[in-house]
């Protein structure tokens, strides 16, 4: 079956004088899979996401979404940034409906209301973005990304600006939201726990140049139980491979359990 997302030999450099930001990424993501990309700061994970989103183009290699080469932002791709980036002059409902401008009015309003209901913001539909809390605003951003029913949803550290409680709450919420249309999900995060709660597969990225260091399937049963001992074991394993990604490259490509 055609992979939802395919990266072949993707490299990125901004200045030839400096080392590659991304040095040859090969990645295939299955339809409906949830992939987490984990790495320390500056390893190029946000750059990678921007390449997939079409906001930037690779220096070499290709990015294919649903079999099509990505040449710019694509209607099948949804994106959630670290900040909500809601437009301050539009109400919450208008923000959520932002990507639906080509639809007839009643259709976009219906889908917008549905999306708001799914993120639990129906009561805030007429509010201004600045009246929302951080968690609410990020939920609105999620609703805005999901309302266009993207095939691929990209999230760039979506919850890192939130407090721990809100973060855990939204992580669970994201899983519920994903359950509706089951898009392919690519989550960039530096939070190991978040990666394990959400992802089917975790990829660690090494910096300078950015390369995939390890890949591991997460075989914990869903719903993921943060307090289960197996979760703790997985966390330690992932942390170890992440620390390995911070040291010079190793021979092993993936860890056996």
């Amino acid at each position: 079956m055609l992979p939802s997302l395919l990266l072949r030999g993707v490299t990125k450099t901004y200045d030839p004088a400096f080392p590659l930001v991304l040095g040859g990424i090969d990645l295939a993501v299955r339809q409906g899979e949830m992939l987490a990309i984990v790495g320390g700061s500056g390893c190029g994970k946000s750059t990678l996401l921007r390449l997939i989103a079409g906001l930037d183009s690779p220096s070499s290699g290709e990015v294919l979404v649903e079999g099509e080469c990505v040449r710019g932002p694509h209607p099948a791709i949804g994106l959630v940034f670290q900040e909500p980036r809601l437009l301050p002059w539009l109400s919450v409902a208008q923000n959520v409906e932002f990507g639906l401008q080509d639809l007839p009015r009643d259709e976009s309003e219906r889908r917008g209301a549905e999306a708001l209901d799914r993120v639990g913001l129906t009561a805030q539909a007429a509010a201004w973005p600045h009246q929302l809390s951080g968690g609410q605003a990020q939920r609105a951003a999620l609703a805005r990304a999901l309302v266009t029913r993207p095939k691929v949803l990209l999230l760039d550290e979506p919850f890192s600006a939130l407090d721990a409680l809100t973060r855990a709450d939204l992580q669970d919420h994201l899983l519920d939201l994903w359950g509706f249309d089951r898009p392919t999900l690519v989550l960039v995060t530096h939070d190991i726990e978040e990666a394990l709660v959400l992802a089917d597969r975790v990829v660690t990225l090494r910096a300078h140049p950015g390369r995939i260091e390890t890949e591991q399937e997460v075989t914990l049963p869903r719903p993921r139980d943060r307090d289960h001992p197996a979760f703790e074991v997985a966390k330690r394993r992932l942390r170890a491979s992440l620390n390995g990604a911070l040291t010079p490259p190793q021979a092993a490509r993936s860890l056996a359990s």
Binding site: L55, G72, P73, L79, F81, E83, R85
Partner: peptide
């Protein structure tokens, strides 16, 4: 610029 990028995302 971040707001402009939202416009770019929605083409």
């Amino acid at each position: 610029r971040k707001i402009i990028e939202v416009g770019r995302i929605y083409r």
